Simulated assay, not measured.
Amino acid sequence: MYAPIPALNLLKEFEDGVDDYFAPGFELIAFGEDDGGYPRLSDRIRPFARATGSGSTYAIWLLDDRADLATLPVLLLGDEGGVHVVARDLPELLRVLASGWSPMCGWDDVDYDDERAEEDEYDPCPRNPAFRAWLRERFGLEPAEDPNAVARAAGAELGDAFAAWIGPLVPDAVADRGTA
């Protein structure tokens, strides 16, 4: 078993069955064994994937003590700074991954970039159509049309709780949002 989250175990099986990226820069890592570059957060996060080829990380945020970890929010921990809520739960993140857009973040914000516009000569994730079909068959989910809207909605819904938790630990994560 890869993780205590059935959906991540299924995703691991899918990833092991393809020979290339199915989402730009996305790659599962040992569940919960990394701190995503933020050791002060390690007791409340469970990193599970590289979000980009440069080292940004996705992590489950242990917002509360609910048993189903797949229903907890997902954070993006930027390799050059920035910590952001990008999905309200794991299924929402899977929809973002299926979009084929790639995350970029700094301290101020997170932005998903549509790399598909550059696909004329290079496809950054040739297995994405297979992933989309898998996501539809396994979970009945479709790709997010606009991953930025997903991230903004998650951030808006969870912003106060996020700022209250992370502000004392990583002040830069909330300083530019006027909530520090």
Rank of each mutant, 00 (worst) to 15 (best):
G106Q: 01
P126F: 05
Y38T: 10
T52I: 12
L90F: 03
T57F: 00
S56G: 13
G53V: 14
E137M: 02
G106E: 05
L169D: 03
E157S: 09
A49V: 11
G100I: 14
D43W: 02
A130S: 13
P47C: 03
D120A: 15
P124C: 13
A87V: 02
L28V: 11
P126G: 09
D160S: 11
E121P: 01
E121G: 10
L75G: 06
L158Y: 10
E15Y: 02
A87R: 03
G36H: 02
E13D: 14
L72W: 00
R177M: 14
I60Y: 00
Y38W: 02
E33C: 06
L141I: 04
V110P: 14
T71C: 01
E118S: 13
L97M: 10
A59Y: 00
D34S: 11
D79L: 04
G100K: 15
A70K: 09
A30D: 14
M104C: 06
C125W: 02
P73K: 06
E118I: 01
E145A: 15
G53Y: 13
Y2Q: 14
D68C: 11
K12M: 11
P39K: 03
P24S: 06
I60F: 01
R116I: 07
G140P: 07
E118A: 10
D123H: 09
D146W: 03
A161G: 03
P47H: 03
Y122P: 00
T71F: 00
P6V: 12
D176M: 07
E145T: 14
L94D: 06
D35E: 11
G37E: 01
D172Y: 03
P129H: 02
N128C: 13
L63C: 01
D20E: 15
V96N: 13
